[in-house]
Design a protein around this nucleic acid. Structure first.
Lengths: 234, 234
DNA sequence: GAGTGGTCTAGACCACCTG
DNA sequence: AGGTGGTCTAGACCACTCA
């Protein structure tokens, strides 16, 4: 065991990852405890703790009290997706952003939407359909349902100048979200809205947003598929 | 300022998030320094540090030495995508997994692939096309290029029993990856491979994988779009 | 029950950055 | 130049969970 004199939780992390990479430790193995590692690296237990804790947070090792720390068996690949505000995404590409409201209705939603939002039978929602342009080309079609019980103040907002996307982000921080991604074919209606051909590929993002167990909003975002690519680097 | 007696970095995090949610602190505001917060919460600076550091890691605040800690202006939504091994994904759905190799060739790649992998002019690669079935229905088509300079041992692997996906995951841990997601239309070839119609929607994932600045592999994964949905909960 | 990780403390030194 | 965050220490107590 070579004792490290320069202690740093980053160096300890890299050293442990090196021992896994070189197959010195194999998946399923239990590695030494924090106290032992602190002696080995010549540092305090807190420093080891931060190193190993961060490895556990990235899924590389698994920790349990008394049982110790084990190399994870088959860590899934995970990727952190940045899902930017549409306007920023368009402006970052150097294009001019424009927003257009297509429809804004307060209503009791159809059953499918009611189920998605987990709403009571007569709860009203705000249904908004709108379009985001990049350099006057349709970039994203947004079809959104907002829970009026949870976000009552939006009845006073016309959404003619600001998109519901940005409006909600300002007023409902720290909400939890679930995202689904899929590919679909454009039907005649969406094709005419996005100015593409019927049967073209659409990249579709569905998002549901909660806070404190209440559903706030559900939205379906459709992008012309060929031109859109969502990137993530892990 | 109410002094907290029960100090915990989690309580401090929640308290700070509460002050942002209630608009006590607005985006762009500078919040008190660690020492001041430690006094306010009646705890040590390390505890405050962990709370605020984790908020910075989630993008809720931004920190700079000397300048202090500010509430982030417009935190992007981010989602952690789990990208499982195909086999596990299929088995989790209760379906029977089967793997089939379609083609395996060692070659000097065409220019487009060479550029994607950042390879020298005469570097050889291994080109693999294969198929993953769920209950005998084509589930995912995999078109992969492996850098033979970086992963020479794979010339000895036939990839008839094990998919390159799993083979590489076992041997190249901790690689960095970049993912792209898009929607495409199936051409005649892919349609016949996946047993769908030409012009059907495809959900396409492109992944490039590095380690230590060397590209290891690039892969394109195609799913029949209607049947596929990638989920993530943040 | 005992061993492990989870957290906290009260100090310290340093690196970075802004005013 | 000085204030801020970034990290580290050497202790401590506690909570969980396995045997």
């Amino acid at each position: 065991m070579s004792k490290m004199r320069i202690s740093s939780f980053l160096k300890i992390k890299q050293d442990i990852m090196g021992k896994i990479k070189s197959r010195h430790w194999l998946p399923g193995d239990t590695i030494p405890g924090e106290e032992a590692l602190a002696v080995e690296y010549g540092c305090s237990r807190m420093t080891v703790n931060r190193a190993v804790r961060e490895l556990a947070e990235s899924g590389i090792v698994e920790r349990r009290r008394k049982a110790g720390t084990r190399i994870a068996l088959q860590p899934d690949r995970s990727a952190k997706l940045q899902i930017p505000v549409v306007r920023k995404e368009i402006e970052r590409r150097g294009a001019v952003y424009r927003y257009a409201l297509l429809e804004r209705v307060e209503m009791v939603p159809p059953d499918g939407i009611r189920a998605k939002l987990s709403l009571g039978p007569k709860t009203k929602v705000l249904h908004i359909r709108c379009l985001h342009f990049a350099d006057e080309t349709p970039y994203q079609y947004e079809d959104r349902w907002i829970n009026l019980e949870r976000v009552p103040t939006c009845v006073d907002e016309k959404f003619e100048k600001i998109s519901p996307n940005e409006w909600l982000l300002e007023r409902e921080p720290f909400s939890e979200a679930e995202h689904g991604f899929s590919a679909q074919l454009a039907d005649a209606e969406i094709a005419s809205i996005l100015n593409i051909k019927k049967g073209d590929a659409l990249f579709v993002v569905e998002r549901r947003t909660w806070q404190d167990d209440d559903t706030i909003t559900a939205v379906q975002l459709s992008y012309p598929g060929a031109s859109y690519k969502m990137l993530s680097r892990s």
